[in-house]
């Protein structure tokens, strides 16, 4: 394995919290897993029973946010606490892009990860949150490698491809994963002089570009989100190179959430085994209906800078 920072800690035996390694460490533990959007403690229990490695606590799943319109904000703390009390797995929650006070509140509530998310209405159209200022780790979305590296340079410890949340359509997630991973592959082939041009083109810090050239991967885990509705979708994301998946509306907007949730967990674990994928894909009832990209008027993926 690669380690980008020194192993020594100035805090010594007493112990230090909120370090980069501790924050990234939890993301490492979720690799190979499924993080599910839930809106009630009951749904959180179903998610945990189905084998989710974490839940995302929110008031409305993205499909409903899309349908209802209006301003989407951080969830009610009472609702987040209800979900925290219902499960033993990590609980994540969303803050608006740039809304560092929502993030402060989520940290005070003791959530395990904050998603600075384009699914909520952005609070700042220029700046993202300074994520180094927090003990709690952050995940951020990205549509391309430059965006991913800008978020990492602000302190994100996990990147998820954005996809297009609430559509049940995998096409944008595939585009974003291919963008990110394709450029990583090209950078590993670049010579040292070309890396300067890559940094300029990606609008990303040169040291992070150089690190990718050396290690062949992002310095933090890359997960997939936005449009996963079936076990096959989850396995597709994993085979393309995602290290875990977020499933939002896809589970609790389907006809029968529990079997679908279990099937997506198994598909994510055994993502290279078509026989297991065939077995778990059977008889799940109808998936969420989903929508085509030409039918939507607001692309959440365009939020973020």
């Amino acid at each position: 394995m690669s380690s980008t920072s020194s192993d020594s800690s100035p805090a010594g035996a007493a112990g230090s919290k909120g370090t980069y390694r501790v924050k990234r460490g939890l993301a490492e533990m979720m690799k190979g897993g499924v993080i599910m959007d839930v809106v009630t403690p009951e749904q959180a229990k179903i998610a945990e029973d189905s084998g989710a490695c974490a839940v995302m606590a929110l008031e409305r799943v993205p499909a409903d946010i899309r349908r209802d319109g209006g301003v989407a904000r951080m969830s009610d703390p009472e609702m987040i606490e209800g979900i925290k009390a219902a499960v033993t797995i990590p609980v994540m929650a969303k803050a608006r892009i740039g809304h560092f006070v929502e993030a402060q509140i989520l940290e005070a509530l003791g959530v395990d990860y904050i998603d600075e998310s384009e699914v909520l209405t952005p609070a700042d159209e220029t700046h993202h949150i300074d994520k180094f200022a927090f003990t709690v780790p952050f995940v951020c979305g990205a549509t391309n490698l430059g965006e991913a590296l800008r978020r990492i340079s602000e302190g994100a410890c996990m990147i998820r491809s954005k996809g297009e949340a609430g559509t049940g359509n995998i096409v944008e997630a595939v585009r974003h994963l291919r963008n990110i991973i394709g450029d990583i592959r090209k950078i590993t082939q670049a010579d040292s002089a070309e890396l300067f041009q890559w940094a300029k083109q990606l609008q990303a810090p040169l040291p992070l570009v150089q690190e990718i050239a050396e290690t062949g991967w992002l310095p933090v885990p890359l997960f997939c989100a936005g449009g996963i509705a079936t076990p096959a979708d989850a396995a597709l994301a994993m085979q393309l190179g995602a290290e875990a998946v977020f499933v939002g509306s896809g589970i609790f907007k389907s006809d029968d959430p529990m079997p679908r949730a279990k099937a997506i967990v198994e598909a994510t674990t055994h993502f290279r085994d078509p026989h297991i994928l065939a077995k778990v894909s059977r008889g799940l009832g109808a998936p969420m209906t989903g929508i085509g990209m030409d039918e939507i008027n607001q692309r959440y993926a365009e939020r973020g800078w």
Partner: peptide, 14 residues
Amino acid sequence: RNGYGRQVDSFEAD
């Protein structure tokens, strides 16, 4: 399980 607390309590030490 989680005897040392939640993620905000996660730590490193020697």
